[in-house]
Design a protein around this nucleic acid. Structure first.
Length: 849
RNA sequence: GCCGAAGUGGCGGAACGGUAGACGCGACGGUCUCAAAAACCGUUGGGCUUACAAGCCCGUGUGGGUUCGAUUCCCUCCUUCGGCACCA
């Protein structure tokens, strides 16, 4: 290194530890091996030993109570980044904690191995998705092993292998049989130049990410799961033991239940088969304010209700709406536009004929796809009416309203006006009375609408589970018989640069015979959404090698439902809702016996780097490997758990990780001290008592915190113990037995978080292998009890004195001491004591006036 | 816009309505060293009084409220993050 250049190898605070290590400074871990933990040797040594001994093998017949702790399986993107470690190592620590509590813990790992990136790799680099995926898995498995987790690799699941996906297909067939899987037209993102369907993430600013041509929507026949049938039950979270309120709120919003009235309008004047059209409203109290109707442009009735002179304009509008991508169409800034279709409908309550429009702000998929326009009491209708010069009639009077025109829609409650027989009623009551009236007349009735739509599971892709259906010209759509499963993905697929599914052009796959008439037939070429795979993987882990079905009912009964699920909150509404639906569907099919798949849910936060979420495109992805190599798995694990509360995520920075290395080495150092040396000095009862007390307090605190995933404060408590031990050693007087007990308990508490170093220390302190087969230490409330407390004395809520007193001090005595205090006296001088508040074991507050 | 979470030292963060800042990082001082690094020990919210000892005041995004007492509970507003977003 040349002189004068303050390069990163210089001694500067902000320099990353990795940079420092690259500059040849390995003293941190390598100096005097016996004084420090040598992770390079020991991490490997113990990982190999655990594997050889099958220490973490999970047995179904273990008599201890079962605990199924699952963490969301990763997508095999190729590299495990620090975000994976952040999700997995605390989950592993918690699972280990449960093991030490005496549970037979199932904490499995696998790979969510189907998905688009594998197919993109095939297109871009000519690597087969299978090869790409399996290579990535190989690498990630190695990285996962370096973490030192309790995974039983014999139970690994890879959902892209036929032994798994045949059962995804089998389950599809069961849902189909039960009427829960069906085919319908649905719009897909279509790239006209690539001639292919795009996933939402492949559409960038309304354009194809590959060729930049504008994307439009095109209707395709696709497969759906009828999740809406379970909407009501999915809103019921009572079967869950502990889920974040936040996630329940998100699912509730997603399902979007709203109670209202379906009311029909008369169109019999047109002599169509349909003599009425139905609208859904949550504001039936405003029915007398209807001045127009709006239909979704795609509504099937539009064509028949459009008059010849309006046809050209209507068709143009529909075509334009179709061109818009979903994103554009749903943008908030979107102007309310529409077209009159030439027809009218009659409001039966007042006999009024109102014009029918189409407008793209009305969604075909919600309610009935037709909306009654009440401009005075709905802002969207208000904007629309203004634009097209439609009347705005107030029927719910705001307080103090004198008949003036509105500046904007009045959406609150009020008094019914211009509402025929309902005039003068408060609108809340009007709502009920009008609904009763409509129901009585047979014009409609109370109903419930959901925002939730059926789950579209079709993907026009190769790398997914083939949907096991066959199209026969004679027999129609026929399921593949169960005995013919799996429908295998052909290995010799040709990937086109456009991203089009190779299955459509693979004669060997495509052409088959009809299971019913044996005549020529074609296979379904759509594959399943990967959320189908992840909707039941939790069941497969119970019996991953079972061949007679997707899972062994007996072991599923033993292990399921999942006691604790952990993963990112980004799956709040997709995966977690789909999995709940799937479970309920399987329950109704008689395949499982429980209502909810995941009894408890805990979401870890996101780990960010350089103030942003890690992403390849941003180039801020942190790979744990170099840190593991230089500092050891335990340091990385401990650091991730110490950063802050697990559910809040945090920013990765090198700055603090040294502290964890220092602390683990401090534990190492304390453990290696010869307790016999303590007995050379005279023992001091108070010093011993003090160590015993803090030891027991620490055990209590750590167990409470670990229970609730509060790893950061659990670690802080252990650090306080080691700080105390350091001082106690220097001051002397501690009985060796108490010292040894503190060390043992510390190692046991730390074992779930830092499994390697504690295993090594457990051996070095002469204990039998393995620390991970031990029970958690117990604590004794009596020993943890404080004998002395600091009594805080306040005057008018401000701290004026702190007095050391016996813990068992009585109220009168405490108050007496407080009032006598030299520091308190001046504040009482000449003032009237109005009140003296006493909080047991804490404080006395003297209120003076 | 709606729903949800969160705003605390230089930084990450602790605090059953009862001592704000545990624990760690960084910084500063010291020990060791020829010197540095590492390691170890100590100090570390801001301001003020004071020779010292010891005190006082201010401080948990903003402004109110409840309370003997509020980081904690309630209301207003501001900011950040996450989710949904024309849902009739």
């Amino acid at each position: 290194m040349g002189a004068g250049l303050a390069l990163p190898c210089d001694r500067r605070g902000g320099v990353s530890i990795i940079q420092r290590l690259r500059c040849g400074d390995t003293t941190m871990t390598m100096r005097t091996p016996e004084r420090r933990y040598n992770h390079r040797e020991n991490d490997k040594k113990w990982q190999e030993r655990w594997e050889r001994d099958k220490l973490y093998q999970v047995r179904d017949d273990d008599p201890r109570p079962k605990w199924y702790e699952l963490t969301m399986y990763p997508y095999p993107s190729g590299n495990l980044h620090i975000g994976h470690w952040y999700a997995m190592s605390p989950a592993d620590a918690h699972a280990r904690f449960r093991r030490m509590q005496g549970y037979n813990v199932l904490h499995p790992m696998g790979f969510d191995a189907f998905g688009l990136p594998a197919e993109n790799a095939a297109i871009k680099r000519g690597i087969h998705p299978h090869t790409w995926t399996m290579d990535n898995i190989e690498n990630m498995r190695r990285q996962l092993r370096s973490m030192g987790a309790v995974y039983d690799w014999d139970r690994e699941i890879i959902c892209a292998l036929p032994e798994y996906y045949r059962w995804s297909q089998w389950l599809f067939l069961q849902l189909h049989k039960a009427g829960l899987a069906y085919r319908a037209k649905a719009p897909a993102n279509w790239c006209p130049s690539c001639q292919t369907v795009l996933a939402n993430e492949q559409v960038v600013d309304g354009k194809c990410e590959r060729c930049d041509s504008p994307v439009s929507r095109r209707d395709l026949e696709q497969w759906f799961f009828r999740i809406t049938r379970y909407a009501e039950e999915l809103l019921d979270f009572s079967g869950l033991l502990d889920w974040p309120e936040r996630i329940k709120a998100m699912q509730t919003n997603w399902i979007g239940r709203s109670v209202g009235v379906e009311i029909s309008f008369d169109i019999s004047e047109y002599g169509l088969e349909e003599r009425e059209i139905r609208t859904f409203t949550t504001r039936i109290d405003t029915i007398y304010g209807v001045t127009f109707l709006v239909m979704a442009p795609e509504h099937p009735l539009v064509a028949r209700l459009t008059t010849p002179e309006r046809r050209a304009e209507v068709d143009a509008y529909i075509a334009q709406a179709r061109r818009q991508t979903e994103v554009e169409r749903l943008s908030t800034e979107h102007e309310k536009t529409g077209v009159f279709i030439g027809s009218y409908a009659t409001n039966r309550l007042n006999g009024e004929r109102v014009p029918i429009f189409i407008a793209d702000y009305v969604l075909l998929t919600y309610g009935t796809g037709i909306v009654m326009g009440v401009p005075a009491h709905d802002q969207r209708d208000f904007d629309f009416a203004r634009r097209y010069g439609l009347p705005i009639r107030v029927v719910i009077a705001p307080a103090g309203w004198k008949g003036e025109e509105l500046e904007e829609a009045y959406v609150e409650d009020g008094i019914q006006v211009s509402s025929g027989p309902f005039d003068g009623l408060p609108s809340r009551e009007g709502k009920e009375r009008i609904a009763d009236h409509i129901q009585g007349q047979g014009w409609g009735g109370r109903t419930v609408s959901y925002r939730l739509r059926d789950w579209l599971i079709s993907r026009q892709r190769y790398w997914g589970t083939p949907i096991p259906m066959v199209y026969c010209d004679k027999c129609g759509i026929i399921p593949v018989p169960e005995k013919d499963l799996p429908v295998l993905l052909p290995e010799d697929a040709q990937f086109r640069p456009t991203g089009e599914s190779p299955l459509k052009y693979h004669p060997g796959f495509l052409n088959t015979s009809c299971p019913q008439c044996q005549g020529p037939a074609q296979r379904e070429t759509d594959t399943m959404d990967t959320f189908v795979d992840s909707s039941w993987y939790l069941l497969r882990y119970a019996s991953p090698h079972y061949h007679q079905g997707p899972f062994d009912p007996a072991t599923v009964r033993e292990w399921l439902p999942v006691n604790q699920y952990t993963g990112g909150a980004e799956h709040a509404v997709m995966h977690l809702l789909y999995a709940r639906f799937f479970n309920k569907a399987l329950r109704d099919l008689g395949l499982v016996e429980f209502d909810e798949p995941f009894l408890r849910l805990y979401n870890q936060g996101t780990i960010i780097a350089e103030r942003h979420k890690m992403s390849k495109s941003r180039g801020n992805v942190v790979t744990p490997d170099p840190y593991v190599e230089e500092l050891g798995a335990d340091v990385v694990r401990t650091y991730l758990m110490f950063l802050g509360p697990w559910d809040q995520g945090g920013e990765w920075s090198d700055a603090g990780i040294n502290g964890m290395a220092r602390w683990l080495n401090r534990v190492w150092d304390l453990t290696h001290r010869d307790a016999a040396a303590l007995s050379q000095r005279p023992t001091d009862a108070e010093a011993t008592r003090s160590l015993v007390r803090i030891t027991h307090k620490t055990v209590r605190k750590v167990e409470e915190d670990m229970e609730r995933f509060k790893f950061n404060t659990a670690l802080a408590a252990m650090m306080e113990l080691t700080n105390h031990m350091g001082r106690a050693w220097d001051e002397g007087g501690v009985e060796p037995v108490a010292w040894g007990d503190a060390i043992d308990k510390l190692l046991l508490l730390l074992a779930p978080i830092a499994p390697h170093v504690t295993e090594e220390l457990w051996e070095r302190t002469g204990h039998a292998y393995s620390i991970h087969s031990q029970s958690l230490p117990t604590w004794d409330g009596e020993l943890a009890r404080d004998e002395e407390i600091t009594l805080v004395v306040q005057v008018n809520g401000r701290v004026r004195d702190r007095i050391q007193v016996a813990a068992g001090i009585g109220e009168e005595e405490a108050k007496g001491l407080a009032l006598e205090s030299q520091r308190v006296q001046p504040y009482l001088d000449g003032k009237e004591i109005r009140q003296v508040i006493y909080v047991r074991g804490r404080l006395v507050n003297v209120v003076v006036g």
